[in-house]
Amino acid sequence: MSLFNKIFSSIGIGSAKVDTKLYQEKFEAGHEVTGIVEVIGGNTEQKIDEIYLSLLTTYVKESNDRKFNQQATIEKIRIVESFTIGVDERKEIPFSLKLPYDTPITMGKTKVWIQTGLDIKNALDPSDKDYIGIAPSPIISSILNAVYDLGFSLRKVDCEVAPYKFRSRLPFIQEFEFVPTNGAFRGKLDEVELVFFQKSSDTVEVIMEVDRRARGLAGLFSEALEMDESIIRFTVTSRDIPNIKQQLSNTIHSYC
Rank of each mutant, 00 (worst) to 15 (best):
V37H: 10
E38V: 10
E38L: 10
E38S: 13
V39N: 01
V39D: 06
V39P: 00
I40G: 15
G42M: 06
N43G: 07
N43I: 03
T44Y: 12
E45C: 06
E45M: 11
Q46P: 08
I48T: 06
I48Q: 02
D49I: 10
E50T: 15
I51A: 03
I51D: 03
L53E: 13
L55Y: 00
L55I: 00
L56M: 01
T57I: 01
T57E: 06
T57K: 02
T58W: 05
Y59I: 06
Y59G: 07
Y59D: 03
V60Y: 09
K61I: 14
K61R: 15
K61T: 14
K61G: 14
E62K: 13
S63R: 15
S63D: 14
S63C: 13
D65Q: 15
D65A: 14
D65F: 13
D65L: 15
R66W: 13
K67S: 11
F68N: 13
F68Y: 13
Q70V: 13
Q70P: 11
Q71K: 04
A72K: 00
A72F: 01
A72T: 00
T73A: 01
I74D: 00
I74E: 00
I74K: 02
E75D: 15
K76S: 05
R78F: 09
R78A: 10
R78D: 08
R78G: 12
I79L: 10
I79D: 04
S82G: 07
F83M: 02
T84P: 08
T84N: 13
G86L: 07
V87Y: 01
D88H: 14
D88W: 06
E89R: 07
R90D: 11
R90I: 15
E92T: 07
E92S: 01
E92P: 02
I93Q: 08
P94W: 00
S96L: 02
K98Y: 04
K98W: 04
L99W: 01
L99Q: 08
P100R: 06
P100M: 12
Y101P: 05
Y101H: 07
Y101S: 02
D102P: 02
T103P: 07
P104T: 14
P104L: 12
I105Y: 09
I105T: 08
K109A: 12
T110C: 13
T110D: 13
T110K: 15
T110M: 15
K111W: 12
W113G: 10
W113E: 07
I114F: 01
Q115T: 04
Q115K: 08
T116G: 05
T116C: 11
T116H: 06
D119E: 06
I120V: 09
I120S: 01
A123C: 10
A123F: 10
L124T: 09
L124C: 04
L124S: 09
D125K: 03
D125F: 05
P126C: 00
P126L: 00
S127P: 10
K129G: 05
K129M: 11
Y131G: 14
I132Q: 02
G133M: 15
I134A: 08
I134T: 08
P136C: 08
P136S: 11
P138Y: 05
I139W: 04
I139P: 06
I139E: 09
I140V: 14
S141C: 05
